[in-house]
């Protein structure tokens, strides 16, 4: 199902800079960021609001242009692409999940999920099979004929995730995918993220939700448009017979 694992990073960004020009005053949002993400890695990007984390992932997905620096996706230079070039690359390689779902409201759930696969060049039969598989995985098979507006927030976010995974992207990018969800719906999204990650999906997501970030292999922290930390999340050293009850006591 996945392309053969090679040593080519899924993302290689070097010296990435974004400066917004608002009313003459240049406002730097991202100030020289380097990031390499290997196939199968799950990277969480954290940082205070205004630290540049959303701008950063939007640039990685070609949804914002970079001011300077290079972006290589799956071994191909991407930052020099035209808007239509990016559109083609996204269809083929990138799935994107936003905080507010962005589903097409006048299309059914099924059509929302099939669309990216069809745009990516899949046959209608393949797109339908992929949609059926994803919606079943998400417990949404019975909602296939519904309009997005008939679904709860958690269901809509699961559909958005299914849509992002429909064309089997090399890279799943997400910007606060649980930012708008209550605790139960967050749990559904977490389960699916964990599942696709275990299947080898490369994931880069921006989040302030510690439950989401704690599932990542690595956490990258941004402050004022720069990376101030980039390191794996370690496993806790377990004492023999120790339970997480000790954690509850620590924080209770």
């Amino acid at each position: 199902m996945w392309p053969a694992v090679t040593s080519t990073p899924v993302i290689r960004a070097t010296g990435l800079v974004k400066i917004y020009q608002t009313g003459g005053l240049p406002v730097p949002a991202v100030r020289g960021v380097d990031l390499v993400v290997e196939p199968g890695e799950f990277v969480a990007i954290m940082g205070p609001s205004g630290s540049g984390k959303s701008t950063f992932v939007h640039m990685l997905g070609g949804l914002e242009t970079r001011t300077s620096g290079e972006i290589w996706l799956d071994g191909k230079r991407a930052d020099t692409l035209s808007e239509s070039g990016w559109a083609v690359l996204r269809r083929q390689k990138v799935g994107f999940v936003f905080q507010f779902f962005n589903l097409v409201t006048n299309m059914t759930v099924a059509d929302n999920v099939e669309l990216p696969a069809l745009l990516g060049g899949a046959s209608p039969k393949h797109a339908r099979e992929r949609r059926e598989y994803l919606l079943a995985e998400l417990g949404l098979e019975e909602r296939a004929g519904a309009a997005p507006g008939q679904l709860s927030g958690g269901e809509q976010q699961r559909v958005a995730l299914a849509r992002a995974l429909a064309n089997q992207p090399r890279l799943l990018l997400a910007d606060e995918p649980t930012g708008n969800l209550d605790s139960r719906n967050t749990r559904d999204v977490l389960k699916l993220l964990g599942k696709v990650h275990r299947q080898g999906q490369t994931i880069v997501l921006v989040t302030h939700d510690a439950r989401v970030a704690s599932m990542a292999d690595r956490v990258v922290s941004l402050l004022d448009g720069q990376i101030v930390d980039d390191a794996p999340i370690a496993r806790l050293q377990r004492r023999p017979g120790g339970t997480a009850g000790d954690i509850v006591e620590l924080h209770g």
């Binding site: 510690a210 439950r211 970030a213 704690s214 599932m215 956490v219 999340i233 370690a234 806790l236 954690i247």
Partner: peptide, 8 residues
């Protein structure tokens, strides 16, 4: 985050 993963 390690603690959170443990709790999860």
């Amino acid at each position: 985050l390690s603690l959170m993963r443990d709790l999860g």
